[in-house]
């Protein structure tokens, strides 16, 4: 390891003076300086935590409020269905399960939005951006933890649903996953496109509104065209198409988060006039 770093310095020091232009001098200088900095004899050892430990240390800070609201959302879904079926869970037939799973997935996304936008809402984003882990890693850690939580909620709900209605694993997964992907992709795009809006509550409201609209569409399908839920092939195709879009949207959002929240010149200007 040590030898490799000395070799790197040795290579950096092999300078062909004849071809040095101003730009090359700077590049060469930086290469030499970086190689020197990397030498164990020069480096001051500082113990720093990795991403996994950082992620685990986020758990206490992600807030009981979030988990309480998500738990409450899950209970609400079950509660509404329980009441509407007069407590007769046996009637929670194959027809009701898809709607219940879809609404649950959307509610999980809905309740995550305030957490993901809180750095902007509470003016913490500049400090978070300038820290070693930076804001994008913080958001990535929170997303992973949220997804893990969603997975647990999904596991429990899917177990209950499969137990009651005897649905296949593919169907249960699709009824949950597709609305989750739709809500997640839409919200990630909305968050990106409203970057720099002064009122963060408006951004949250927009995402919640979008999720609400999705839930309404699911409800409408459930009421008017329940047959849609039987076409599981179409659900799989939609999920396959949407999954890369979801990943891309999240990736782009995280990339945008690496700088003081601005994507467009217009936002740039707004930010300037606001801060100076």
């Amino acid at each position: 390891m040590e030898r490799k770093q000395y070799e790197e310095l040795s290579n950096a020091l092999k300078i062909d003076v004849k071809v040095l232009t101003a730009k090359r001098i700077q590049t060469q200088k930086e290469r030499v300086l970086q190689s020197v900095r990397n030498l164990p004899a020069v480096q001051i050892p500082k113990k720093r935590i990795g991403f996994c430990e950082f992620m685990l240390r986020q758990i206490p800070f992600m807030g009981r409020d979030l988990w309480m609201s998500q738990g409450f959302a899950a209970l609400m879904v079950f509660g509404v269905l329980y009441l509407s079926l007069d407590g007769e869970l046996d009637y929670l037939s194959i027809r009701h399960i898809p709607l219940m799973l879809g609404i649950l997935a959307i509610m999980l996304v809905m309740t995550s939005i305030p957490l993901l936008l809180r750095p902007y809402r509470y003016q913490m984003h500049e400090i978070e951006l300038a820290s070693r882990q930076s804001l994008w890693k913080l958001l990535a850690a929170e997303l992973i933890l949220l997804m893990a939580e969603d997975l647990v909620v999904f596991g429990i709900s899917a177990g209950i649903a499969a137990g009651i209605a005897g649905l296949s694993a593919v169907k249960v997964t699709m009824y949950f996953l597709l609305p989750l992907l739709m809500a997640g992709t839409g919200c990630a795009q909305l968050i990106r496109r409203t970057s720099g809006w002064e009122e963060v509550s408006q951004r949250i409201g927009l995402c919640e509104g979008y999720c609400g609209l999705l839930a309404a569409v699911l409800l409408l399908l459930y009421r008017t065209k329940p047959a849609v839920y039987d076409k599981i092939g179409a659900w799989v195709i939609c999920a396959v198409i949407l999954f890369p879009l979801f990943v891309l949207s999240i990736g782009m959002w995280l990339k945008d988060s690496a700088e003081v929240g601005e994507r467009t010149g217009m936002v740039d200007a707004a930010l300037y006039y606001q801060s100076e």
């Binding site: 113990k47 720093r48 935590i49 950082f54 240390r57 986020q58 800070f61 807030g63 409020d65 809180r118 509470y122 003016q123 913490m124 500049e126 400090i127 978070e128 820290s131 070693r132 882990q133 930076s134 913080l138 801060s275």
Partner: peptide, 26 residues
């Protein structure tokens, strides 16, 4: 920064622990 905030519910200790994690401190 000029404008800096904190999350509601954070006490001084929580806040500093939170930032320490962001700064990668053990």
């Amino acid at each position: 920064p000029q404008e800096f905030g904190f999350y509601p519910g954070f006490c001084v200790q929580d806040y500093l622990e939170y930032i320490a994690a962001l700064k990668g401190l053990t």
